[in-house]
């Protein structure tokens, strides 16, 4: 797994917007002075007449997107996850979620891997915020290729979608041409001693952990659960029944994210011991991305440690 190609999920998002823009003239893209960072700048270059910078005004941007969607266009509105989901939460809730408008929110720079910018920009609460809005689809792709496919799937879907992307270039393990299905998880490694359900950049960390565990004789099933809502309940249920123990991994707070979604489902349908790996209800800090991730246990080594402890092996 050493020399894998790397690409940030935001890069896949930008590529998909350009591809979609060529095929569909109903697509318009909004940004809040971060077009270079969110990668909507790629779309702006190709389609300057359909890219609208809203300035540093995320609240206005989300409602402008709502108005565009109410008038027959398909807007993608982008900013950093912190400001898209946090600053504009109530605008998304009331002007996009409540009327169920066809707005796609492309949020980049999610999670701890923002790195040096530190806690003010390390959004680890967006899954919780967005999941709580009725009808909102929440997706966090694991690599650039999946992000590209997920963006296209979000366009094809009629209704509000929150796409969470990262700043960091991460290993690509999906094949080019991968087709994304909203609400469908993906088993990326077979096993039945334990199931590790992850999303975002934690999927690759879980895959590395899976390899290390295999060398120690533990066969872990690794699942990429990129759609947090709606959750692929069938796949979770199957993993619980066949593996008996579950670990969730996400670059998000343990409060309100993938881990809680899995726990909530299992506790009502198939009570199963679960351990959650995520940000333990604390704020982040500055530092190089991988050092920050390691400090907060968002890495393969910690997944291995938690797994062995959980299994008592």
């Amino acid at each position: 797994m050493a020399d894998v190609k790397k690409m940030a999920t935001r890069e896949g998002y930008g590529k998909a917007l350009v591809a979609l823009g060529k095929e569909h003239d109903d697509i318009v893209v909004l940004d809040a002075d971060l077009a270079g960072s969110t990668k909507t700048g790629m779309f702006a270059k190709e389609f300057p007449d359909r890219h609208f910078n809203c300035g540093i005004a995320e609240a206005d941007m989300m409602c402008v997107a709502a108005g565009l969607a109410a008038s027959g266009l398909t807007p993608f509105a982008s900013s950093f996850a912190m400001f898209a989901s946090g600053r504009a939460y109530e605008q998304i809730r009331n002007s996009i979620g409540y009327p169920a408008l066809n707005v796609k929110i492309g949020a980049s720079h999610g999670g701890m891997s923002v790195g040096e910018d530190g806690a003010s920009h390390q959004c680890c609460e967006d899954f919780a915020l967005m999941r709580s809005i009725p009808g909102m689809v929440v997706i966090c792709p694991a690599d650039g290729v999946e992000a590209e496919a997920a963006t296209k799937a979000a366009y094809a879907y009629d209704g509000p979608v929150y796409l969470r992307m990262g700043r960091l270039a991460v290993p690509v393990f999906h094949e080019e041409g991968f087709q994304f299905q909203i609400g469908k998880g993906e088993v990326v490694r077979e096993g039945s001693d334990i199931a590790i359900i992850a999303n975002g950049l934690m999927v690759y960390e879980a895959m590395k952990a899976g390899q290390a565990l295999a060398e120690a004789g533990i066969r872990a099933r690794i699942i990429n659960m990129s759609t947090i809502k709606p959750l692929d309940e069938e796949l979770v249920l199957q993993a619980a029944r066949e593996c008996g123990k579950i670990i969730t991994c996400e670059e998000h707070s343990v409060v309100g994210g993938l881990g809680e979604a899995v726990c909530a489902f299992l506790s009502e349908n198939c009570p199963t011991p679960v351990r959650r790996i995520g940000v333990n209800d604390v704020f982040g800090c500055s530092g190089p991305a991988y050092e920050v991730l390691e400090k907060f246990g968002l890495c393969a080594d910690n997944i291995v440690k938690v797994t062995r402890d959980f299994l008592g092996k």
């Binding site: 609208f52 609240a59 409602c63 108005g67 565009l68 027959g72 807007p75 605008q91 002007s95």
Partner: peptide, 18 residues
Amino acid sequence: STGSLGQGISCACGMALA
């Protein structure tokens, strides 16, 4: 759909832009 103050005018801008 409106009710939360300050949002409708932005939505209207989106409609005008559309």
